[in-house]
Write a protein that binds this DNA or RNA. Structure first.
Lengths: 226, 226
DNA sequence: AAGTGGTCTAGACCACGCA
DNA sequence: GCGTGGTCTAGACCACTTC
């Protein structure tokens, strides 16, 4: 019996073999269902999957075509830092460097897209077996933090958030920068050393939650399967 | 009428409100289908989607539970460099720096996981409106390159591959490094400047296809929505 | 052995986007 | 309009995992 994964494999084979060239329109779901002897829903499952990963482009009425420039999509996990350290078999440590309620600088407000006044500003150092692993610089909307503030020296803001302010939209970006200032000092690297930097911004449906900048120790690598 | 997206929203709301705490087992599909007055397939679609993005964990017989440490997954596109440059409204240019058939160094063979003897070695500079955008260092399995070799000075190996050797598995990784050697020179940056580096390895089902290292111009940023 | 999620079917209706 | 993909249903069988 042909399952949706078999259909997917067959479609991929036809694309690879150029039976269905790049950019070409392929037969409709009904036709393929007949040809393969399966229900239309099964074909739909296979084609939807291929569209999700960028191999096909589907539009109602227009039909399904092979992506002209197959844009590969890759996905990766955004782990809680503690889990990431422990997954390497190292011992996690956390050191609170700075904590205050103050006005965020203009760039942070801009990234959040909305001014919510004073915010909770937390700077922490995440350790892997005693060595600096990540320097975290975070601004939190006071509206999401309870009044007796959690002890961010014991549980990282990162971890507290995923457990208490679940689900939100946001964006994330990665860049290479030369280390500098307090971040370089906290991490214990020389000024100008190349470091991997993650910046993330998250919103609840109606208000910003947090902006965070993570400076990873030199040698850090973000990797995933295609 | 309740569609699968409504079910998804309701499930998310229950998780957010702690009606279903982190790590807790939630009712089975049949029960939820009855409660929401929809078919089980609709509930399945919603829960599968949530499992795919890491909010739920599902196991046959064991049931569905809320992920204890919700690992957010992000996905991003791996565009063809020309498309990336043009998407910025800049003019794409390509300069072939080096082309030879030679033995790959040990690290490259190791990453590919299989020794295929001599390979095609291509080094190119991708330009955005005349300025260096990406330095590409690529090793290609000779088995995937036709005998009159394509003109890699006209069409980048990158682009030629997606059009002619479609679909493969592989891995990709990102890191920050200090620029150096011919790469720094080709890009026109000072030695030691922080650059964003992408390394990618792709395989056909039975043999390696290519290994490539991309050094992006300073200031490059990889970003995506969560 | 039994319960749960994973998938398939045949049919149906709907929404979108072209003409 | 009208064709295509998107989704839903009710029922069924299967695969996996835990008991």
């Amino acid at each position: 019996m042909a399952g949706w994964e078999d259909i997917r494999a067959e479609v991929l084979a036809r694309i690879r073999s150029r039976a269905w060239p790049l950019g070409a329109l392929i037969p409709g779901e009904e036709a393929l269902a007949q040809e393969f002897g399966v229900a239309r829903a099964t074909v739909n499952r296979a084609l939807s999957e291929l569209a999700r990963v960028g191999v096909l482009e589907r539009k109602r009425k227009a039909g399904t075509r092979v992506a002209a420039l197959p844009v590969r999509k890759a996905s990766f996990d955004i782990p809680v830092i503690r889990a990431e350290v422990e997954a390497r078999g190292e011992i996690y440590g956390l050191r609170l460097l700075y904590l205050a309620i103050e006005r965020p600088p203009v760039p942070v407000v801009a990234r959040l897209g909305q001014d919510v006044g004073d915010m909770v500003h937390v700077q922490t150092l995440h350790l892997a077996t005693g060595r600096g692993f990540v320097v975290e610089d975070r601004w939190l909307n006071r509206a999401v933090v309870p009044d007796p503030m959690p002890d961010f020296g014991a549980v990282s803001a990162n971890e507290w958030l995923v457990a208490h302010v679940s689900y939100a939209t946001g964006d994330i970006s990665f860049a290479a920068e030369g280390a500098g200032g307090w971040e370089a000092e906290a991490m214990g690297v020389t000024d100008g050393a190349a470091v991997f930097v993650t910046e993330r911004c998250t919103w609840a449906p109606e208000h910003p939650i947090t902006w965070v900048r993570l400076v990873h120790a030199p040698g850090y690598r973000l990797s995933t399967l295609l």
